[in-house]
């Protein structure tokens, strides 16, 4: 029961922060709201008995990725060339497309879970130990490929950041 209350609070924080991120104008504020959203999502991951996913959600997303975003927000001038009042068409069309998508996916979710929404099964806790064992045995190839991808992204980011300065 307590888990239910915590889940709904976290869900409200998460959806509220994501909604507020649409409404605020300043990209810096958007980034901070997103930190809120991702932290709450980390809590929900914890409730879903996925402590490892919760930990890396907080560390990687709310920590590393959002700090990277905030660095970039500081480096670029967020107001350069952005008209605060935009085209009317995008303002109306965006939420309209969103509502259509919400209706469509909502129907699908309702059909799938509306009637048989029993309480989520609890039991086999996904302990980090077991996740690590899986990662290094069953999923060793995806894991190694990911490390190659990270290396490529690292080199790519460095090259992209450097190129402009060597040009005149």
């Amino acid at each position: 029961m307590a888990a239910d209350i915590i889940f709904w609070i976290l869900a409200a924080v998460c959806a509220g922060a994501a909604g507020a991120m649409i409404l605020v104008k300043n990209p810096g504020h958007s980034a901070l709201l997103l930190v809120f959203c991702f932290s709450a999502l980390g809590g929900i991951f914890g409730l879903l008995e996925a402590p490892f996913a919760a930990a890396i959600q907080i560390l990687v997303y709310a920590g590393a990725i959002m700090v990277l975003f905030i660095f970039v927000v500081m480096m670029v001038d967020p107001r350069a060339g952005i008209p605060l009042e935009g085209r009317k068409r995008a303002k109306i069309l965006g939420p309209a497309i969103g509502l259509v998508l919400l209706f469509e996916l909502g129907t699908a979710v309702w059909r799938a879970f509306g009637r048989t929404s029993g309480p989520a099964a609890s039991g086999a806790a996904g302990s980090p130990v077991e996740v690590g064992r899986r990662l290094f045995t069953e999923f060793i190839y995806p894991f190694e490929i990911t490390s190659l991808l990270i290396l490529a992204a690292l080199v790519g980011a460095v090259v992209l950041g450097k190129k402009e300065q060597s040009e005149p």
């Binding site: 959806a15 994501a18 991120m21 649409i22 497309i97």
Partner: peptide, 12 residues
């Protein structure tokens, strides 16, 4: 809900 909010944010 989160996904739809992301889509709307992307368009707006």
């Amino acid at each position: 809900v989160l996904f739809v909010l992301g889509v709307i944010a992307f368009f707006v």
